[in-house]
Amino acid sequence: MAGKTGGAKVRKPVSEPQKADLIGFYRDMLLIRRFEEKAGQLYGMGLIAGFCHLYIGQEAVVVGVQSILEPDDQVITGYRDHGHMLAAGMTSRGVMAELTGREGGYARGKGGSMHMFSREKNFFGGHGIVGAQVPLGTGLAFSNRYKGTDAVCIAYFGDGASNQGQVYEAFNMASLWKLPVVYVIENNQYAMGTSIARASAETELFKRGISFEIPGEEVDGMDVLAVRKAAAKAVQRARDGDGPYILEMKTYRYRGHSMSDPAKYRTREEVQDVREHRDPIEMLKKKLLDAKHVTEDDLKKIEAEVREIVNDSAQFAQDSPEPDPAELWTDVLVESR
């Protein structure tokens, strides 16, 4: 992340994570959390507007999955996308400046929180229409197959999106044509304010592929190592040409659906319980300390380094100017001549 854990990796087999990997995961999750807290703060100050969906609580999912991807694999997700962009190696500065709608943002301020892209990092959005990323990601997988590469597309979506019809249209074609796509369902238990039990007849979402012959499994989405292990298997399967796979990540978001969500649909105790007992960052921290991979001092250093990156990006996002008025008219069409 931010150039620290990226870089070329040996393609298969995915190795057991070493000490440096574990520390990297910790740092990456912490960066996402601190980044999101800062985004929330900037939102509160009126510097970020519109919809702003924070990823706090779900960090282990994206960090675990991204840890086994190759640079040419593609990633696509919905609107709760800041964590995915950071994990895909996009810069905190570019993401934060897009949140503030400034020239230094990934879309020069024209996309905002829900619509950000990086061709360079193979991050294909950032899509604001719930579920749209599923057929789009399946199409990216189709392009891999067509071009004869062994790249895999990861399509992330939530428990809410899993009730959209287009998801199943995509499932059908992906399985029919054995496309190299892994569907990662981030089941954070609430589709906006509606709990999964109130919205889904079948709440075990990993079973949603059964009628399309897509296998799936439930994964503890709060445990970055469990996520990594499951993702490694699913991605390898897709890479080998055996078709799509569904990973249902059981996770939890601590914050509201968006910044303007009063979160009256769940109790504070419920949130607090997850924070205290299942927090992905705290759990990994404990593992690192127990195994004596790090000392408290090491952790403080990481914390300081992360904070520096986040503060720097917040400063950049405020200092970067608003886009030039001429930007209003650019990028509507690609001029062919």
Binding site: P135, L136, G137, G139, F142
Partner: peptide, 18 residues
């Protein structure tokens, strides 16, 4: 298959993919 929403989206994804 008869799945307009799905294959239109898949087509757009393929275009994003080059």
């Amino acid at each position: 298959p008869i799945t307009e929403y799905g294959f239109a989206g898949l087509g757009v994804g393929a275009a994003f993919g080059g």
